[in-house]
């Protein structure tokens, strides 16, 4: 599905991404993790075809992403930006229908079954009752659901998520990623997500791509990648990694230098 060949990006004389090569297969979910400034968002923009690399290629189905026509690209690749939709005065249904834009001719008409796709996206995201409400009257969590429904209506083969859980409370974070995961399994969707929360990344992603200083530090399944020494090297934080008691997925616990603020009762009494 995706192949990066010697992909590099330099912005204003600064090298953001060093030459990197990797391949991602169709139907899997990938997480891109790494500290701030590691080049995660830049890599995502290159994969979305919005920017041209300074060297190398980001290939989608064998063709450079930036070489697709805009609408052809939008039929294959959808992007969910952080923060969800802005407060616009369109209704939920109107906003979701805009996801069909790449399939419409210049009169705004669509040959295929656009209406049914929109219906389904609204239903799947539990937005059927909200469809006539205006987007600017919704809560942040509801707006994020609208954004996801709109992306679904776009029927992409590749979904790029740019820190989708930022600004969401934990209930909505899990709900959002559960939805994406179910959708990915149903439709053989390829998902690439920039994620801040390493525990969520380890749970949801088949493989993790760890970026550090513009290069690839590691690329593999969470069980191989989420290791205390690698995390300390990349993030500069000491951690303990434990298997999740119910799922067995590796989960991180932070181990700061300073002792915990709330002293243990046993220590206090002894």
């Amino acid at each position: 599905m995706i192949e990066a060949k010697g992909l590099a990006m330099t912005i204003a004389g600064h090298s953001i991404l060093n030459e990197m090569s990797f391949a991602m297969r169709k139907g899997a979910m990938y997480g891109i993790i790494g500290p701030n400034g590691a080049g995660k968002s830049t890599l995502l923009r290159l994969l979305s075809g919005m920017e041209r690399p300074t060297a190398g290629q980001a290939l989608l189905e064998g063709k450079p992403a930036s070489a697709y026509k805009r609408k052809e690209l939008a039929k294959r690749v959808a992007v969910l930006q952080q923060g969800g939709l802005p407060a616009v005065s369109f209704t939920v249904r109107e906003a979701v229908t805009m996801g069909r834009f790449p399939y419409q001719n210049w009169l705004g008409e669509e040959a295929s079954e656009g209406g049914r796709v929109v219906e389904r996206a609204l239903r799947d995201m539990g937005l059927a009752e909200l469809q006539d409400r205006r987007v600017d009257g919704l809560s942040g969590g509801e707006r994020q659901r609208v954004a996801l429904a709109k992306v679904m209506a776009q029927e992409p083969e590749l979904l790029l998520l740019d820190e989708p859980t930022t600004y969401l409370d934990i209930g909505y974070q899990v709900q959002l990623l559960d939805t994406v995961k179910r959708w990915q399994a149903e439709r053989q969707l390829t998902v690439v997500a920039v994620l801040h929360d390493l525990n969520l990344a380890a749970h949801y992603c088949d493989e993790l791509l760890v970026l550090h200083g513009g290069g690839i530090e590691a690329f593999g399944p969470p069980s191989k990648v989420v290791q205390p020494d690698l995390i300390e090297r990349v993030f500069g934080a000491r951690t303990v990694v434990l298997p999740h008691p119910e799922t067995g997925v590796p989960q991180l616990l932070l181990l700061p230098e300073v002792p915990p603020a709330e002293e243990r009762r046993e220590e206090a009494s002894s």
Binding site: R70, K71, A74, V77, P86, F90, M98, F101, P102
Partner: peptide, 15 residues
């Protein structure tokens, strides 16, 4: 119409 979501958003939709 797509511009109201922001230019980048519009670009991702094929504008």
């Amino acid at each position: 119409n797509l511009f109201v979501f922001g230019e980048r958003h519009a670009a991702h939709l094929g504008v």
